[in-house]
Computed example of a mutant assay.
Amino acid sequence: MDGAIRLAIAAGFAAMPLLWVGSAQAASFDCSKAASRIEHLVCDDPDLNSLDSQLQGAYLGALDRSNHPLDVKQKQLAWLRQRDDCADRSCMAVAYRRQIKLLSAISDEPPRCGGSTTVEIDSCALEYSHRADRELARYLAAARNRLTDEAKQAPTPQAPKTALADLDVSQTAWEAYRKAECNAVYDWWSEGTIRGAMYQSCWLEVTEARTEHVWSTWLRFMDSTPPLLPDPTKH
């Protein structure tokens, strides 16, 4: 791969921020400060805890993928008012699941994806790769938060502490693998005009697979408790 192009691509990804979510118990607020009836219902029920965490992840993802984030915010506020009218946990659980499904389905094509030139196609592919990076960052943050919380609460905290350290090591190794793998793809296509698009396609595919693995390994439960974030393959 040409050195200048590699540096430009690497700089684009290095600029991506980590989007941290809240605690694994209830991602959208601190249960130690619960005040309203609804907040206490969420904090006192494990399933609602997890659904609330899922909802926060689905909402952040929808904001990121939508070309009209203000509409997403307004609809979310309207949904919160509807949820607050629920009289019991059953009504709330139904409302959460319905809203999570709606938010997870929001995925607009980026504005830069309307062209047909090589530069425009590469720009479009880069934006999808950026979205995938931001989503992976959210899922990794949730996994780290879960392990951190379990280390605080477990009678023997060494296991989650060690797992958290190992997760960070594995993420660093995975990032090196992704770079090497997609560089190989770029080099294979280096004499063609689609080399940039092929590189971004590799980046997107490998990143989405990593996000699904993080979700499956760290954000689901062995029992019927809902996962901490929505299934990333469902949008």
Rank of each mutant, 00 (worst) to 15 (best):
D2G: 09
A4M: 06
I5R: 11
I5D: 13
R6V: 10
L7F: 01
F13K: 12
A15C: 06
A15Y: 03
P17M: 08
L19D: 10
V21W: 04
Q25V: 14
C31W: 10
C31L: 05
K33V: 10
R37T: 12
L41Q: 15
D44S: 11
D44G: 11
D45V: 01
D47I: 04
N49M: 07
S50V: 04
S50M: 05
S53T: 06
A58M: 01
L63W: 02
N67I: 07
N67D: 13
V72P: 03
V72Q: 08
Q74I: 06
K75S: 05
L77I: 13
W79L: 01
R83Y: 11
A87G: 13
A87D: 11
R89F: 04
S90F: 07
R97I: 00
S104D: 10
A105D: 13
I106Y: 02
E109P: 09
P110H: 04
P110G: 04
G115K: 09
S116T: 15
T117D: 13
T118P: 03
T118K: 06
E120Y: 07
I121H: 08
I121A: 15
Y128A: 07
S129D: 13
H130P: 06
R131L: 11
A132P: 13
D133C: 01
D133K: 14
R138P: 01
A141C: 02
A142G: 02
A143W: 08
D149I: 01
E150I: 09
E150C: 07
A154N: 14
P155L: 04
T156P: 01
P157F: 03
P157A: 05
K161L: 15
A163C: 04
V169C: 11
S170W: 07
S170T: 07
S170K: 14
S170E: 14
A173V: 13
W174D: 03
E175Q: 13
A176Q: 14
E181H: 15
V185A: 13
D187H: 11
W189N: 15
E191Y: 13
G192Y: 12
T193F: 13
A197R: 09
A197D: 04
Q200E: 12
S201D: 15
S201E: 13
W203A: 15
V206Q: 15
E208F: 10
A209K: 05
R210P: 09
T211F: 02
V214F: 00
V214G: 00
S216G: 05
T217L: 00
L219A: 04
R220E: 07
R220D: 05
F221A: 08
P227G: 01
L229I: 03
L229D: 03
P232M: 02
T233R: 15
K234M: 04
